[in-house]
Write a protein that binds this DNA or RNA. Structure first.
Lengths: 211, 211
DNA sequence: GTTTTAATCAACAGTGTGTTGATAAATAAA
DNA sequence: TTTATTTATCAACACACTGTTGATTAAAAC
């Protein structure tokens, strides 16, 4: 959800912009972990104390900066008045992937070793490996998948991870079983389709039974 | 994929176990960010230099420790010989959610402010907010969803995030449009089902058209 | 019982931290 | 334009953590 703010003091805007730019520039040249507040303020040509007037940590600055970029992206997405029904419309997704491709170097750093997204990425990849192995073990071999199994596994793993985080943050409002059922339902009917091509959606579910 | 290792020197096993336990204990009592190597080795009653004989950073230790837990979980999952067809079977998912519930305090820290998973979590939540808004705007209001929209949004956001990471790591082997189409396909047929209840899967897709 | 490997200890120089109070400069409000 | 408010600067501070060193002791493997 795009953040809407009141106009701030011009110096504040300038300083925050400079800090954000400095961080993104540094990210391209050195390990994220190794970047210090001192580095950032040096790069931005600002006093180190100034940093603490605006942000409490590197991560806070990074989040604020990323969210600005995201907001721009969302505006682009909203500008697209797609007359297509939304389930035939991949414009939004395409814009996201294009955006990431545009800033690939930066995003790659974020999920790389020492990056802020590294641990989450590793966890998701771990889940994905398990899922991929499961699919390969249980899938009827004759079926040719429309989407590579590794991608399907990432899809499932990402979904699972996000649901887990949501569940934790919301203080576990459902039982594990309920969550498992909902996760399973949401994922399955997507991945099954991906495995078997679209037409089967018109057939009863039981056709999947014969392996 | 569970990691299988050769038997190590007993001292090595003991040290790594102690370090892992120390980190997990500390995580429950203080901000992850604020935990230093010194803290960890103090808690584990080991010399600080010993840490560096095994791990290069806090994150490395954390990942190794988490993966051990995951491996245990996967073993549990494999032990379940489920005769159910896997698309009616939520045992694996349930085990995951139960595992997280069991260690909720720790996992909550990991995705909280200052935690290693914080930024990824925030990014996913940002995407989820956009998705939720989109669904609410475009969904036929008469339809009563089988799964809360917020959960559906998390599902889609997590999937998108994971696919983005995979795509980056694999050096973008598909075009943005191809990725968007696959992401869209995998997600849509899951979330649509979630919105409309299962029986519609037997109907042609076009019934979704009339809003 | 011998050899190999691991943990300990103290010490090191270096770097980054977060905060301080006073000062100067830029901006907003009148 | 003038006045009042807010922001950035600077230097300095005490402190904690880092990552690595070489020599020593202890434990485990063979």
């Amino acid at each position: 959800m795009p953040t809407s703010k009141k106009p701030l003091d011009r110096r504040v805007r300038r300083t925050r912009r400079l800090l954000g730019e400095a961080l993104l520039e540094l990210i391209l040249t050195q390990d994220y972990d190794s970047i210090s507040i001192t580095d950032i303020t040096n790069q931005a040509d600002l006093n180190r104390a100034t940093f603490y007037l605006h942000f409490g940590s590197k991560e806070e600055l990074l989040m604020a900066t990323l969210e600005e970029r995201f907001d721009e992206l969302v505006q682009e997405m909203e500008a697209q008045n797609d007359d297509q029904p939304f389930w035939h419309d991949w414009t939004s997704d395409r814009l996201i992937f294009e955006h990431v491709a545009e800033h690939a170097t930066m995003y790659r750093v974020l999920i790389g070793e020492g990056g802020v997204g590294y641990v989450a990425h590793r966890i998701i990849s771990y889940i994905a490996e398990v899922v991929a192995a499961e699919i390969r073990a249980e899938k009827p071999t004759a079926v040719e998948e429309a989407i590579p199994i590794d991608l399907i596994a990432q899809h499932v793993a990402g979904s699972t991870y996000a649901l887990l985080c949501w569940w934790l943050q919301e203080d576990m409002p459902y039982t594990p079983l309920e969550m498992a059922q909902m996760a399973q339902k949401m994922c399955f009917h997507g991945t099954m389709w991906a495995l078997m091509e679209m037409q089967v959606i018109n057939e009863p579910l039981e056709i999947y039974l014969e392996k």
